[in-house]
Nucleic acid binder design. Structure first.
Lengths: 188, 188
DNA sequence: TGTAATTCTTGATCGAGATCAAGGATTGAC
DNA sequence: GTCAATCCTTGATCTCGATCAAGAATTACA
């Protein structure tokens, strides 16, 4: 709980009162082993999670293939966003890539807090803006034609991913095969 | 102004008082001819625009190629989002694809209104959530391997685009050449 | 309306990345 | 710590979409 509290107050500049209100509800701890599902396809995502430790992958089955669309790692938030927002069954599934520990807040609690505390909504708005900017970056990554350039962009933007995540997932995330990633990682 | 007012009140459910406050500031009309720039690369995006009529393209130069990353059409909002949010020079440029008429609100006015009216911030938060969901859809579109499937997804999600926008732009948007788009539009 | 510019289509060729395959290196589970 | 499973690498081949080209259709604008 410490890390989240610090994250809210220092990183996100949320005042004490609001941080306290948020933290009261943010306490549904969950432990996952490698390959355990946090969220399954078809299931409604009722929680927003904060990752205490470990790494997770967000997957989407596309034309019968498992496609990686994102990762989660310590001290960030994760959920099947469309499902959480829309309260609909999730097209995505989220799986632990190693031993993982999370805490969650329910959608109803979360949205109640947004309505109750304008500063929390303000914070959430800012986080959404950031998330949107991230997605826009990601879109350019995906549109970049050469595999080598795509790798380079990810290396620049998120070098830590290469430490945390097995290459085969990164390859899928970068819209290429593990072979292509391997061949292009050697000599830059 | 009519259309925007109606859009705010009916589509977005914004109460009279807030709609009125927003509209007071939202009045910087602009007319563009085909190929005119709304926003140039390197220029800071200081306005958020509402498109009264016409169509626009959002472009990004990627590996020396002009890449289409989005479109704008009547009764929607448009701007170089990262530049508008971050107050930094824009990597994107926005160009009219035909005669276009817009009205804009300045960033400073807009953010002042967000701070002043929680309901406007609430509305903006909801719009950001929607925009984020749209981007997530778009990501899946881009990850879809077969050109034919990518076309199909866009046809399902935004059939109107095919009426409004010349195919060569759509091809770029769908990460393929005009030739490939043409060849795959004939027999489904 | 007429004409020039642009866009769309169809064909032929080419090449980058996918696929298939197999040996070697890491990793994880007990 | 051991052994099995998983992951990474390297090579050979193949395939789909890009590229190049040229003619037809459409659109823009005076």
């Amino acid at each position: 709980m410490e890390a989240l509290s610090q994250y809210l107050k220092e990183q996100l500049q949320l005042p004490e009162v609001e941080a306290h209100a948020l933290l009261r509800y943010w306490q549904k701890p969950k432990s996952l082993k490698r390959n355990d599902f946090l969220t399954r396809q078809g299931q409604v995502e009722n929680h927003l999670y904060y990752i205490r430790q470990g790494t997770l992958g967000i997957f989407y089955d596309i034309e019968e293939n498992e496609q990686v669309v994102g990762f989660g790692y310590a001290d960030t938030l994760i959920c099947s966003f469309p499902s959480f927002i829309r309260n609909h069954p999730s097209d995505y599934y989220i799986q632990a890539l190693g031993a993982t520990e999370l805490i969650g807040i329910s959608r109803s609690d979360f949205y109640r807090l947004l309505d109750e505390y304008p500063r929390i909504e303000h914070l959430w708005r800012q986080m959404l803006e950031e998330a949107l900017l991230g997605r826009i970056e990601r879109e350019i990554d995906l549109l970049t034609i050469s595999p080598r350039e795509r790798i380079q962009r990810l290396l620049n933007r998120s070098p830590h991913i290469f430490q945390l995540i097995p290459n085969k997932y990164i390859a899928s995330y970068l819209r290429m095969t593990p072979e292509t990633l391997s061949r292009n990682m050697r000599q830059p």
